[in-house]
């Protein structure tokens, strides 16, 4: 079951210039879906389309099993969203901001202190939201999204401007919501480390095109196929053997790196090294981080 499904979603701001091209987003229910891409990749445009803030030009959008064009208000009633910078009334206090949305979403007034406590803003008193730090504003924006206990959260860069402690808190909060309430979370970010740590599924977008979509294990497989690093006493000889086996290598001092080397190729290479009496001190599968994978995907697309 998908919480969000788009089919052939495209959007143009100017004639013939596509901000999004044929985006087929599939966000499973109960997942934390990381929507990753550099600035200007089309993340916010996609999220704005999902929320009906931009008119759908091409393609279809289904959210929580319903068509966005047919039941926009009904769908939005079940979504908590925060797009780009926090949308807060700076001349109102945190409680007054929440009271505003509590009436809009027609939820219980008791939710106001509850969500303030959840995001750690329970003691802001009469301080106006305009005087909040960016981190506090982000937390209040998240509190607003949680107010009506929605089954789906759409958060655009929610850890922007937060200090490391704040980032950890928000990350824990999102994990807790997902685990305890089954809340589906669509999370956009360009902070690659953040996406990697909490998401179960990933979508990587670049220049309006979805380059990768799948669960984290698929990405791990992709990572696993990347490279093998080893230390040896005869780098030159080892490199010659690698070339004979059609393996792409990078040699550095006493280290050799085999690019795009599958498990079977690694085993065959090691057997050859042993037969040639080449000493191997260390062999390890390179733990490529998401940033490297992302850059590889972007590079391949370019």
């Amino acid at each position: 079951m998908l919480a969000i499904e788009t089919q052939h979603l495209s959007h143009r701001f100017a004639r013939d210039v596509y901000a999004l091209e044929n985006i087929n987003l599939a966000v499973p229910r109960g997942s934390i879906y990381g929507f990753l891409g550099p600035n200007g990749a089309g993340k916010t445009t996609t999220l704005r389309l999902l929320l009906g803030l931009l008119p759908t030009q091409t393609g279809t959008i289904h959210v929580l099993g319903e068509s966005m064009t047919r039941n926009r208000a009904g769908i939005l009633d079940r979504i908590g969203s925060s797009i780009e910078t926090p949308s807060l009334y700076g001349h109102l206090t945190a409680v007054e901001n929440l009271r505003f949305w509590q009436k809009i979403y027609r939820c219980e007034p008791r939710r106001i202190p509850e969500v303030l406590e959840i995001v750690g803003l329970g003691d802001t008193g009469k301080k106006l939201a305009g005087a909040f730090s960016l981190g506090m504003r982000q937390r209040l924006a998240i509190a607003i999204t949680l107010l009506h206990d929605p089954p789906l959260l759409i958060l655009d860069e929610p850890t922007n401007g937060l200090d490391p402690h704040g980032i950890i808190e928000i990350r824990d909060l999102l994990l807790r919501l997902n685990r305890d309430h089954g809340t589906t979370i669509l999370l956009s970010s360009h902070l690659l480390s953040e996406i990697e740590r909490i998401t179960t599924h990933l979508g990587i977008i670049h220049r309006g095109k979805l380059l990768f979509q799948g669960d984290v294990s698929e990405l791990n497989t992709l990572k696993g196929q990347q490279s093998v690093a080893m230390r040896t006493n005869r780098v030159g000889d080892a490199q010659a053997i690698a070339r004979r086996l059609n393996l792409e290598t990078i040699a550095e001092d006493r280290a050799l790196n085999l690019k795009n080397c599958a498990d079977a190729q690694t085993a065959a290479f090691l057997r050859e090294l042993a037969l040639a009496h080449i000493d191997v001190y260390e062999v390890r599968r390179e733990r490529l981080d998401l940033e490297t994978v992302f850059l590889d995907l972007v590079g391949a697309q370019a």
Binding site: R48, G52, G74, D77, I79
Partner: peptide
């Protein structure tokens, strides 16, 4: 009030017609 606080998007993403 809406323009200065950048709140149109939040209001328009709410279920209120």
């Amino acid at each position: 009030i809406e323009f200065r606080n950048n709140t149109w998007k939040q209001l328009n993403a709410s279920p209120v017609p």
